[in-house]
């Protein structure tokens, strides 16, 4: 079951970004580069993490919404502005 990146809305994460009580998945979002558990906090403080996601999202947008991964190729139909609609503003 794919999961959605809470930062950029990329809809094909392989793992749930965070496990309650057990930290982040350490998966790196190929779209925005967020490593869950590193860039977005380590514990279960949802309020802080939500704000952190907003900060990371603004950074990614300000940086031009570039595809992060140099390992995973950019999907042919990838549209970052459309992808953002996968998350609640």
């Amino acid at each position: 079951m794919p999961y959605t990146c809470p930062v950029c809305g990329y809809p094909h994460l392989e793992e749930q970004p965070h496990h309650p009580g057990a930290g982040g998945s350490d998966e790196i979002c190929p779209s925005c580069g967020t490593q869950f558990g590193y860039h977005d906090g380590a514990n279960d403080d949802l309020v802080w993490r939500t704000k952190r996601h907003e900060v990371l999202r603004r950074k990614w947008i300000a940086g031009g919404m570039k595809w992060h991964s140099k390992v995973d190729p950019v999907p042919g139909d990838w549209k970052p502005e459309t992808q953002l609609r996968n998350i609640e503003p």
Binding site: G41, N43, D45, W48, K51, R52, V55, R58, K59, I61, A62
Partner: peptide
Amino acid sequence: FSQPPMWSLPPPP
């Protein structure tokens, strides 16, 4: 739009 300065990040827990 301006990038928030580093010191304005929300305080972590």
